[in-house]
Amino acid sequence: MMARITASVFTSHVPAIGAAMDLGKTREPYWQPLFAGYEPGRAWLRERRPDVVFLIYNDHANAFSLDLIPTFAIGTAARYEIADEGWGPRPVPAVQGHPELAAHIAQSVIQEDFDLTLVNRMSVDHGLTVPLSLMCGQPPADDFRWPFAVIPFAVNVVQYPVPSGRRCFALGQAIRRAVESFGQDLDVQVWGTGGMSHQLQGPRAGLINRAWDNAFLDRLIADPAGLAQVPHVEYVREAGSEGIELVMWLIARAAMADVAGGAAPRVAQRFYHVPASNTAVGHLILEET
């Protein structure tokens, strides 16, 4: 038996969402519609719990300062602590890795000419923990752990040059080949996080582009290879300076079967909500058929 990719999950990773959960505010009128949009995804995940989630996110000046700026960094450790981003670490479980699968993916894609950085020690910030919280809820105190192993995959979208959509898409295809050549019986999901439209800086802060975001979701489902050709400047102009995070969704999307010539995935959930703090929240689940 070999490992297989069963689904991809896409979600924004706004820090205020984590704070709302940690402070018990999820039923407040401001937050209730957002969390309601993740209830179907939580129910779906309970039925289709993977062994491993390959989680694509970006670090926000927590694990990586300006000392070291890896374009693509794969976590090959057994465990990752929760970062103190300046407000104290989020009260969520540490993340258990999957070093064997991570090492296999690293070997496979590096030998396919993607120059990954290997990381054996790093803390993980809201970019990784907020998607886990949104999809899993808060783990119970008497079983305080995430329900699957996680391979963190950090992409530099903070300091330019950031990788192109085209490069992210090709990398996702290589990750699929890597997972499918791993000789253990494992269900693997690939999660792409960040976005959607938002800008956190300058006089244009607060930008939201609902039409562009929804067109992005449409194309991510139906025309991901075409979407991968969109240049950076369009993300920044249309979706805000921090909207560039959406290139990470292309890695997860390209790991699905249809991109490799297989059947199109089923859309198990699609949700869009404005605002969470400064940000438009998008969420999609694509299930292999």
Partner: peptide
């Protein structure tokens, strides 16, 4: 983050928050 982002727009904290609730800039 919302207070920080809003401080760069020349808007009051309340006006910025209201703009976001109405769908953003």
């Amino acid at each position: 983050f919302q207070q920080m982002a809003g401080s760069m727009t020349g808007m009051s904290e309340e006006a910025y928050r209201d703009m976001m609730v109405r769908g953003g800039r």
